[in-house]
Design a protein around this nucleic acid. Sequence first.
DNA 1: ATTATAGTTCGTTGTTAGACGAACGACGAA
DNA 2: TTCGTCGTTCGTCTAACAACGAACTATAAT
Lengths: 107, 107
Amino acid sequence: MFVILRTNTMFKTPITGKQKKMARYAKAMGHPVRMYVLELLSKQSCCYSGDLTEELPIAKSTLSQHLKELKEAGLIQGEIEAPKIRYCLNRENWKEAQILFEAIFDM
Amino acid sequence: MFVILRTNTMFKTPITGKQKKMARYAKAMGHPVRMYVLELLSKQSCCYSGDLTEELPIAKSTLSQHLKELKEAGLIQGEIEAPKIRYCLNRENWKEAQILFEAIFDM
DNA sequence: ATTATAGTTCGTTGTTAGACGAACGACGAA
DNA sequence: TTCGTCGTTCGTCTAACAACGAACTATAAT
């Protein structure tokens, strides 16, 4: 018989998967430019990288990096409409983030 | 007559103070240990550094650094009860953070 | 006075983040 | 085909981050 011990006692880490997940989302949101993008996308269905480049006072390569970070955190996704890329929220993960923050803020 | 132009057109930054504030809170929440602390404190009135040291698999000096980051972001505060320090949420800023996250998640 | 407890600060190390311009790749238009 | 547009990747630089142990500070207990 195998008893798979995955309790916190065993590994001495009380930090839950939810907390790790939430920290990941928070980390992605922890930069003003990325906050700007997320807020914009939460209010409209999509936006294009080029539009953001014009609005934000950063190099387009920097914007690419920020968008990449948001993609890797799972909060946004991009769809190619050659030659442009259209970005939108990943609704599933956005919902998950909402639920996690909701829980900690007791809302 | 002085006209103080502080519009976004003038300085070409559309990023609002709220977004910056929110990014600051998110940045502080963007580490699992700090997430753990905040969640614990949101559920109970206070905790002691020493208790956290025993619960978390990190050096106490590392914990001090994390607590310092949360203090500097304004999310927690410490009160000396020699020889211990009692930490609790900064209710005002916690509320502010709640409101900001509430707004972006449309809750 | 010394010792013990509790927690912070310091210094170090290695990693990551965020900024940029240049080079690049993927298209569509001419 | 070349050229232009669009956005990404690369390389570089500097700063920030997160880990640790040791030294330090502030107390209370002996």
